[in-house]
């Protein structure tokens, strides 16, 4: 049974990159374009892992993390944040909000899959 990954990113390029890498690795991918959209599709998608960008319009990644962790149905879902090496402070903030792990951009497919494996049951 293949696992489902929900990707939340406002950049189409990044969404496409994630889609390419994840589907090549055998995952089912559900996409959302910002935090609000991500929470909308969360229930139906029932993802095994959420991958979210931090800087997004409407609701940013921190908002996504906080909402998911407060939602009793989904709070056990691992969340990986997309971050850059220079965003140490953002990474820490994401962690404090309840992020499970992070993926450093730009990622290569191996790093991406390795991060998912370390959080996906």
């Amino acid at each position: 049974m293949s696992k489902t990954i929900l990707t939340i990113d406002d950049s189409r390029t990044m969404r496409d990159m994630l889609m390419l890498a994840l589907s090549n690795a055998g995952y089912r991918v559900v996409q959302a374009v910002d935090g609000v959209h991500g929470l909308e599709v969360l229930g139906a998608a029932a993802p095994d892992v959420i991958i979210t960008d931090i800087n997004m319009p409407r609701m940013d990644g921190f908002g996504v993390i906080e909402s998911v962790r407060k939602d009793d149905r989904h709070r056990a879902t691992p969340i990986l944040v997309l971050t850059t090496e220079s965003d140490a402070a953002k990474k820490e903030r994401a962690r404090a909000a309840g992020a499970t792990g992070w993926i450093v951009k730009p990622f290569n497919p191996e790093k991406l899959v390795s991060a998912i494996r370390r959080v996906a049951a």
Binding site: D10, S11, T13, M14, N55, P57, K105, P106
Partner: peptide
């Protein structure tokens, strides 16, 4: 703040893709 954020995101987004 939202205008400033949008401006930031635009550049951030270009950087992210360019990195890839």
């Amino acid at each position: 703040p939202e205008t400033v954020n949008a401006v930031f995101r635009a550049v951030h987004s270009i950087k992210g893709g360019a990195g890839a």
